[in-house]
Design a protein around this nucleic acid. Structure first.
Lengths: 333, 333
DNA sequence: ATGAAAGCGCTAACAA
DNA sequence: TTGTTAGCGCTTTCAT
């Protein structure tokens, strides 16, 4: 497994390394046709492959960026990563994806590793606890973009859903369908994760707007492990809600599982709307109404934003870009 | 954004670069306590972060491996990638994931890019058309492992499902539930993609074993775009099958969508078993029986195998490791 | 116990 | 038009 280097090509072609380098970097301007041809042949004959590591060392750019996702198990995460990857692939960048599993220490560790690998930029779904780390990066003018969540203390361009509007859309739909006592369930709000907090807030605002009662006991941010239990306590109480908003795909699964296990008919016994349009919502029986994030657009935007930051094109950047959610109305409510 | 180098640390600590390097690589043996302390302090003070690119250039190892997945849109792909990533993370490797989108040219391009980046190894879901490329890698003793699909012409360790057994399991379950006319649908078999071909083969063998009729018209490998049409032609024909095996998750979605649109009751009008246990199968109404791949085990095995290959520990390696599928029986059939 | 120096494969002035 | 040379930041003999 011996690698062919530029020197080998140079020797084979009877020219110097620099000439080969010129050739590889398309600086043909002052290059003789015959030289070009000979280098071309030498490369072909030896099966030369440039060594990006050496190139990176010199150029101080790895044409690689890192994505640190808070939790890969949401369909939203994998889908937006695909969109991001597609965009960077076009720009000839590679993407290293890291899953922080909602753990700030892991996030920190990944940031360090990625920086050590000289990535040219970072897209982070921030856990909020590493504020000093983010600020440090920012101070050094390191290309950084936040996704999905915002960190008020840090001045970094952020791509996220208009969460309040999303929750509002859900409430509106339920209101219009005639439901009167709504609830919303999200993952734990312990760490003030933006989407959860904002969706709950939007939910409340919308309820007030439509004159619906706001029952705190039906508005819960609770860890997934305890979700079933929480749902149960809500549903067996006096005057249970007639409609529930699922804060994300995983919560939706919990609710559907509960509904099935307890023979709740959807939407007769309980109407459901899920925030995040997941693949099976449309084929579920009955089809589940959802609030969709414009995932591709968001991934695309995050990627192009980072690319432009890397290119130092200090183009005017809105600090936070909020994308609108759309309602995908189906039979479940 | 000025990076601190080893030279800076050396100066700050009043020692030479080599000593700092020793320190970083834990070669403390002959190092004075005071020197150690001073280097430690200098690193802390300057906030030094080693440059992995420089290190990689010297060491000829990037502590990065590449995974080229044939098609990321299968839940199987994303889940097994997670398992692989988890394993490499433990070994302090980074993983670059590339999606070949079932296109051999893209696969080839990714292989070249990853090699240029000096990845230490590759896990590939092979498209079969790049046989010469695989052989070249193999010839050079480049650490390579195949996943999900085998390539007969190439002698590379391969981790895959025991596809025949999987299909057999599906048929057995349907047979035992009393179904008599079975069919199986997979993605296009045009390129002889191992799982599709083998699942069909296993299906046929099992049907014969149980004395069930083998109707070629109910055994189809067809592109996803044309799946609905194909299902329709099968179901409206004379004596349609009373049970269908879905070759993978995407096919299952197609069948379920069709069933819903045409008001086929499951399992009364049509029983269904899906190969690949996807998250929503259990909460579907009715719950869908599936054949599960031991995804985590497979990812783990692929990763450890590659790691051991990288470590040149020429441990005895079975050329192809086939993992058994398991039946997850639910109400749908 | 620590330092000097060579070199990994490439790029980019600057010479020629 | 092409070659010479000096690094990029690190590791690793080999001296000292």
């Amino acid at each position: 497994m011996k690698r062919v280097t530029m020197a080998d090509v140079a020797k084979e072609a009877g020219v110097s390394k620099s000439t080969v380098s010129q050739y590889l970097n398309q600086r043909y301007e002052f290059m003789g046709e015959k030289t070009k041809k000979r280098i071309e042949e030498a490369i072909g004959k030896l099966g030369y492959q440039p060594n990006m590591v050496a190139r990176s060392l010199k150029q101080k750019s790895s044409t690689t960026i890192g994505v640190i996702v808070a939790n890969i198990s949401h369909e939203f995460s994998t889908r937006i990563i695909q969109a991001i990857e597609a965009q960077f692939h076009q720009a000839d960048y590679h993407v290293i994806v890291c899953n922080a599993e909602d753990k700030p220490e892991k996030e920190k560790k990944y940031i360090d590793m990625l920086l050590a690998k000289q990535v040219d930029g970072l897209i982070i779904f921030p856990t909020s606890t590493n504020v000093n780390v983010y600020n440090e990066l920012n101070l050094q003018d390191f290309p950084l973009v936040f996704l999905d969540r915002s960190v008020p203390e840090v001045d970094v361009p952020t791509i996220m859903l208009d969460n309040k509007q999303a929750a509002c859309l859900a409430v509106q739909e339920l209101y219009q369908k005639g439901y009167e006592m709504l609830g919303i369930l999200t993952n734990s709000t312990e760490y003030n994760v933006t989407p959860r907090v904002e969706r709950i807030e939007g939910f409340k605002q919308a309820c007030r707007k439509y004159g619906l009662p706001v029952q705190e006991k039906f508005i819960q941010g609770v860890a997934l492990e305890n979700m079933t239990e929480k749902i149960h306590s809500i549903m067996i109480g006096e005057d249970p809600p007639d409609a529930l908003v699922a804060g994300n795909d995983l919560v939706l699964m919990e609710i559907l599982t509960y509904a099935r296990d307890h023979h709740l008919r959807i939407p007769e016994d309980l109407a459901i709307i899920g925030i995040d349009d997941i693949s099976f919502a449309s084929i579920y029986n009955p089809a589940i109404t959802t609030i969709a994030q414009p995932v591709e657009k968001m991934g695309h935007k995050a990627a192009t934003l980072l690319i432009s930051k890397i290119a130092k094109q200090k183009q005017t950047q809105d600090e936070i870009v909020r994308f609108p959610a759309t309602l995908i109305s189906r039979s479940s409510c």
